[in-house]
Design a protein around this nucleic acid. Structure first.
Ligand SMILES: [Mn+2]
Ligand SMILES: [Mn+2]
Ligand SMILES: [Mn+2]
Ligand SMILES: [Mn+2]
Lengths: 217, 217
DNA sequence: TTTAGTTTTTAGTCTTATCTAAAAATATTT
DNA sequence: AAATATTTTTAGATAAGACTAAAAACTAAA
């Protein structure tokens, strides 16, 4: 049995350390889940005890095979629920994350897999993030950060790395949505801002915004 | 904020005490939620502190108006989720209760109300239990226990009072389902068993079973 | 109306998941 | 290679929710 809190730690380690394959620092985890380093140390020990994590004092933590699978299944549930909320319950993409944070902890294999079927086995969630299958696998991501696109080139907005409501509402306000074609017009070295052009407008986005936009070419 | 544990106590008091209007004993609650009387006393105090319950030492507990509403909303969620699982995710009526026990604690008003709409505003769950509306109200129940039906009379199976998988699987095995027309043939005073007849068969049911079957005439 | 039995409450302990403050280990600078 | 700074771990505390055992309050029987 994996507790709700343990699941959240597994997710954090998975996300911070390339699916838990690269050692993650205590502080990084604490920052991610908004807790303290001492709490993280305690929990990591517990995860190691349960064979979900590999832990060597002072050297960070990675996930074991079963830890990685457990994390992927939580993420699978999170993303499937997000799709459900948008596709079936009229939520917009900026409203789903917090509810999915709760729903991802519901325990029932049948529930997840039937939900998957109901939704037509989606491969991506409303933010463009890939949905792991039953074995925790998903197709490699081919989208690239917009800051790496050379001025003059264009692509389709495929993924946003920040799922917070503030960020997504910024995009709503500025008429930017997944699937939009975006052309990079200019890069400004002074503040790393970007001038982009969509079907409806030309605009400048800050580097904080640009960091979170991923395009497929 | 009402915690998951508090919600479970509210539900228990609501069910045991005519929607929390009749005083419920510490022991009865302990029995219902499979805990100990001392734990119940502690929690009752907390509920009273939060103005969800009325508590006088040694005299049991009732719910306040806001306690009653909170309880009804948890029950509303529980039953809506049960309908969802059966109608949309191919669960059978004996598989839904345990998952609904988890889902009933998800916090999102929009989620509940959109779910309600998706399901077409159902009035009853898969076990025939009424679904409270947003204000916690539901139509009065008109079904009657089968033990009160005089031999020779018949009615439609409208509600089962036990939602456990063991009981529901017993009904499955014996081809009894909500909506079936049941005729009472005979009552046996020796053990309070009942002979009943459905479209497909004639059978004897024990009083333990009969106690849980409610019919509308 | 005492006495005996039952129910409820209190007192004290435990577990899980947190936290703060201090100690220990590792990293980075001079 | 010291000295300093940063990170991580340990030690000790706290809050929620549960438990056992014992005390207190009610209820029923004699
Ligand atoms: Mn999310
Ligand atoms: Mn997402
Ligand atoms: Mn149920
Ligand atoms: Mn039910």
């Amino acid at each position: 049995m994996v507790t709700l809190s343990e699941e959240n730690y597994l997710k954090a380690i998975y996300h911070l350390g390339k699916q838990g394959r690269v050692a993650v620092s205590t502080n990084a985890i604490a920052e991610k889940i908004d807790s303290k380093a001492s709490s993280v140390t305690d929990m990591i020990k517990k995860l190691a005890e349960k064979n979900l994590a590999n832990y060597i004092k002072y050297q960070g933590v990675t996930l074991t095979e079963s830890g990685r699978l457990a994390a992927a299944l939580v993420i699978r549930k999170h993303r499937l629920w997000e799709v459900f909320l948008v596709e079936k319950l009229n939520f917009s993409w900026d409203e789903v994350h917090d509810v999915a944070e709760q729903l991802e902890h519901i325990k029932s294999l049948k529930l997840v897999n039937e939900l998957d079927a109901l939704l037509g086995f989606p491969t991506h969630d409303p933010h463009g993030d890939p949905i792991p299958d039953k074995d925790g696998n998903y197709a490699p991501i081919k989208s690239v950060n917009i800051l790496e696109v050379k001025p003059g080139n264009e692509g389709v907005l495929a993924q946003v790395k920040d799922s917070s409501d503030v960020f997504l509402r910024y995009l709503n306000k500025n008429n930017l949505a997944l699937g939009d074609t975006i052309k990079v017009i200019d890069f400004e070295p002074f503040d790393n801002s970007l001038t982009i052009e969509t079907a409806s407008q030309k605009m400048i986005i800050s580097s904080e915004v640009a960091k979170n936009l991923y395009i497929s070419l």
